[in-house]
Design a protein around this nucleic acid. Structure first.
Lengths: 202, 202
DNA sequence: CTCACTATATACCGCTCGGTATGGAAACAC
DNA sequence: GTGTTTCCATACCGAGCGGTATATAGTGAG
């Protein structure tokens, strides 16, 4: 309701909500949900606290909107990866896409989803649950894609698609942990190559 | 200096420091360093704040002692895993040991190291750096073990020992993230089996 | 017993947190 | 112009944080 372009009545806001949200995403990405203070957020966004609350609601609501932006701008590679013709192609696209995000020069390292899911066990369980729930849907899509891949003979019948999906996401998440811990880009690239080298099937 | 059994002068303390530290470790494990409040710690430890500060120092010092206990009691499987005769044996011991810790019925799920390394990017950078530094030594030992394994022909020369170590720790860390997110024990066991199924060499 | 010493218990400190009340400034309709 | 609406800036709120001062209670040494 705030961002609609209806007939403006009263003083118009002086900032761009999308730019501000992008700045908030960067802070959440670097600090995590609980580690990002409203003071740091408002400073990075270039607005004051009342403006933030009027435009984005409270901190949790702001985080959800930032999460939407993250999925739309940063995780879009996931669904396009599922279009690859083989299971190994899917894995390669997922691994390289994740690598690109986590070693970008402008964005913080690590994965916002991993950071939020692991770090919000303390309080903010609703945040943690939401992040886990969002992951669940893309995980289900990956499982479905790998089921089709097994039918198409991409990998041996002895491997369960769900187990292979769990394995692949584990490698991706482990890469995110390594990136959060400051591992170099070269080593992360070697991680991708090694994972592809041991990948079962085509 | 506090735990020495010298001639006791003055009133003796009424609690067992080791039991209290074990309780503190459980809280840190479940909540993370920053998520564990002193109020929750003292309540779980069964002591008051002045007793805690007198015996363990400040919160950071308490965490380091809890980390020592964690490494001694929970991560002891790591160095014994390196005694396995083959690289795949080492991987299996590491994977199964990590699985056992993270799906235990008494302890919290997930890995304290991963939780601390990922979640403490916010503040407490000294904590994060310490956890990362402690990991580095065991990682170096793993790399050295895999270098020996390659010389012994456990896996193809095309695979770099350091890359393989990075890959294996990524899977273990990814398993920890999955466990933190509440993944079932059966799926985590399948993850171990899948990783061993695709493991290169012997 | 008295003294020296140390653990415990309570209350408190300064600080930061997320969130908000209030007052003025700027843009519209008329 | 006036009125109305909305945004911005400052100051503030209660709550929880890590950490501590103070007073009391319990121990061994002499």
């Amino acid at each position: 309701m705030e961002t609609q372009t209806q007939t403006a009545r009263g003083r118009p806001r002086e900032f761009d909500p999308e730019e501000a949200l992008s700045a908030a995403l960067t802070v959440f990405w670097r600090r995590g949900y609980e580690g990002a203070s409203m003071a740091e957020l408002t400073e990075a966004m270039g607005i004051t606290k009342p403006s933030l609350y009027a435009c984005f609601g409270n901190k949790e609501s702001l985080f959800r909107k930032a999460l939407d932006l993250y999925e739309r701008d940063k995780l879009c590679y996931i669904k396009s990866a599922l279009d690859e013709p083989t299971a190994k192609g899917v894995a390669e696209r997922l691994l390289r896409g994740s690598l690109a995000i986590q070693t970008g020069t402008t964005d913080p390292h690590g994965c916002l989803g991993v950071i939020s899911a692991v770090a919000c066990a303390t309080q903010a369980e609703s945040i943690r649950d939401e992040v886990i729930a969002r992951r669940a849907s893309s995980d289900a899509a990956l499982v479905a894609r790998l089921e089709r891949a097994r039918e198409e003979g991409d990998f041996p019948d002895t491997i369960e698609p769900k187990a292979l999906a769990t394995y692949l996401t584990a490698v991706v998440q482990g890469m995110a942990v390594h990136a959060s811990a400051g591992m170099s880009r070269e080593l992360l690239e070697q991680l991708v190559e090694t994972t592809l080298a041991v990948w079962p099937g085509k």
